[in-house]
Design a binder for these strands. Sequence first.
DNA 1: GTTCCGCATGAATCGATAG
DNA 2: ACTATCGATTCATGCGGAA
Lengths: 275, 275
Amino acid sequence: MDEQATILSGDARQQLKLLGTKSVQLIFTSPPYADQRKSTYGGIHPDRYVDWFLPISSELLRVLKPRGTFILNIKEKAVNGERHTYVLDLIKALREQGWLWTEEFIWHKKNCYPGKWPNRFRDSWERLLQFNKLRKFDMYQEAVMVPVGDWAKRRLGNLSERDRIRDESRADSGFGKNISNWIGRDMVYPTNVIHMATETSNKGHSAVFPRQLPEWFIKLFTQPGDTVLDPFAGSGTTLFIAQAMNRKAIGIEIVPEYVEAIEAKLAFRKQPQLV
Amino acid sequence: MDEQATILSGDARQQLKLLGTKSVQLIFTSPPYADQRKSTYGGIHPDRYVDWFLPISSELLRVLKPRGTFILNIKEKAVNGERHTYVLDLIKALREQGWLWTEEFIWHKKNCYPGKWPNRFRDSWERLLQFNKLRKFDMYQEAVMVPVGDWAKRRLGNLSERDRIRDESRADSGFGKNISNWIGRDMVYPTNVIHMATETSNKGHSAVFPRQLPEWFIKLFTQPGDTVLDPFAGSGTTLFIAQAMNRKAIGIEIVPEYVEAIEAKLAFRKQPQLV
DNA sequence: GTTCCGCATGAATCGATAG
DNA sequence: ACTATCGATTCATGCGGAA
């Protein structure tokens, strides 16, 4: 039943050339942030980040379908007490490359990294930049509407007050804080602010983002049978979610250990499941 | 008891020249958005926004104290289906002018304007850009601490006061020792995401932000007796809040009707209050 | 079978120290 | 002076084991 999932081993810039033109409906990816993850990716210096990314995004532009969408999860770090501007530069450079900067979603990370500094608070948000090729693109808004009627009755009605509080802070609701506002309504469209906690205590491969994040964008921008691409697959979260949602999934990953882990998991899933 | 508040009538670029060098501790303002509010401000075209703003921010740089802070509330609008880049350009231009881009707070508008568009969800956030002159600036973090999340409430809340005292005295149990680490720990530092509902009931004026927004930044970056400046005073919210918090307040406003409204309100406040 | 607590674990950031 | 590494700081979350 599941659509196929493929993992390509190697550098995104090279491997992307293997993909067909206008073949991908959604690109959802979280590239290595500047100067981060040195041990695995070698670390891209903030000042060279745009130059590093543009050849890759050029290929992304080629493989994306005309009405498809590119979602880029990224956040600039603090350097010498200032926010670095490489993300701003990247947005402008991508526009010059032909992308339309359609929207900027905010991912509010409820459980952000702790810490205290004399002139800065904890950073609890990241950008989810939306780029498109055309002003008119495929967007299935109804797929991410929250059905409050039955859902609220079933979920909220029987819950104790304590459970309700707990549920509001749960990651899987996505828009937890608003739950109480939904009672009495049938359907609600979300906004461009997404509340989700990161998954911390997953042993082994800790995913960068919660499963619900790619799931939400896959629902919003693709239909079953469409192709989803993640050129920086990492632990493969986006691939597995896409596959489970009956979308074709293509991932690219440069770290051999990550590729092996993804392959193992994909092979395991191909086995008939015992219930 | 209240510190004085002053409203200057006229264009910010001109009126700012009347203010003393290094005299202001906090600048908090929400300038007219590009191509918005045409009826009142004449509308600055997005493509000319940076050129319009730089002479003003140059004066702001002059009047701000070395350890003071400049908070700019702004959000780009969608033009031809794209997010315009003038805010990104403005950040880069301000840095070239000598400002440090210290931080970007997100104001999450909990009850944002309802509506539906085919290719876009409701916009429920705005930028609060923080600029400084030096890496070391005045920041009074304790003034804005917030109650801790559900975590401690769930775990400590159901301990009775007697249990708590008893456990505290039994350090050797291990249990009491751990509890004592959290006694009195019901406040935590906030993050750079600020959740506040917009105020809907401001008649006559376009309610730009809720009172709690300037209040939060005035607490965070000033002490009583300091001077707060809003070069685009509008309905005067920032001024009144600053005055009520015993800060000196200076506002500039170009629309005569707004100036009159602010003056009337300030005069009223100068009268002895009947209780 | 619930409920509750202990604990590890993060796309972090700054200042000091070392080469 | 400029870069690389390390320690200290801090808090929401889920899991596993205990009450």
